[in-house]
Amino acid sequence: MSAAVSGAISKTVNMPETVTSKEIANAYMEGWRLGLKALAIYSENSKRSQPLPTSNGGNTKGIVGAHSLPTNGIVLEPVRRRLPDSRMAYTHKFSVGGHEGYLLVGLYPDSGQPGKIFIRMAKEGSTLSGLMEAFAICISVSLQYGVPLEDLHAKFSFMRFEPSGYTNNRDLPQVYSIIDYLFRWMSKTFLNKEGDGSDFWQELWRTWQAANLRTGEDGFVMSCTCKMP
């Protein structure tokens, strides 16, 4: 029937999830007494998603934007974990299809995992250089908001576009793009996805910690430029 009735003469009554059959019957009777031509009853959470919840708490499963709703007076928001002003960093030089560049990975002092990246191409001011810098900012913010490096690796590895081709890295001799190279290299170095690079990095990280290299007000930036074994 609803398909043949104009929305101009139909009214919707939003009711809580705990509504009873008697309350629904009373709503229909009230609509009849008011002279309505049609009446629709909607109880909260009866659909997988709904644009407008009727309560602050309770079951918010499936509600669009439920992550931003206040719960017990507390608004849940994503937390950005920035790196300290002084931090350790890992510098890696790469070349893809004749295009050279540098990847600088800033590391969290407690885990040695990436928290910020900088990408510098040899040809400063070029379109490719600008895009790489913008992309690095996007990835850095994602890492600081807690997006796992493993998920980023799954999304960006093996992307195919120019420049592509041969590299100067014997462990990744040929790649499909610069983005493909960067994420496969980071996964190899920090996640041990494509070899034993993670073991090498963890050993280097333990060496730094054993030497009591700290970050903080009296800290410093350590940049390591080296080849993977």
Rank of each mutant, 00 (worst) to 15 (best):
L107P: 09
S129K: 05
G98N: 05
L107T: 08
P109I: 01
G97L: 10
P84K: 14
H99K: 12
V96N: 10
Y102T: 15
S126C: 05
H99F: 07
S129Q: 06
G106F: 03
G115V: 06
K123Y: 02
D85I: 14
G98M: 06
T91V: 15
Y108D: 11
R82S: 13
F94P: 08
R120Y: 03
G98F: 06
M88N: 06
Y108A: 13
H92M: 10
V79Q: 14
G106R: 05
P109V: 01
L103Y: 03
G125Q: 00
A122D: 03
S95Y: 02
G106T: 02
F118R: 13
G125A: 00
K116D: 03
R81E: 09
Q113C: 00
G97P: 08
H92C: 08
M88R: 01
S86R: 14
R81L: 08
R82C: 10
A89Y: 06
P114C: 11
T91A: 14
L128S: 04
K116R: 15
A122W: 00
S95Q: 10
D85K: 14
G97E: 11
G73R: 07
L83H: 10
P84R: 15
I74K: 15
E100G: 00
M121W: 03
Y108L: 12
V105G: 05
V79W: 05
L128W: 03
G97N: 09
G101K: 08
S111L: 06
P109C: 02
V105T: 12
E77H: 10
I117R: 03
G106C: 03
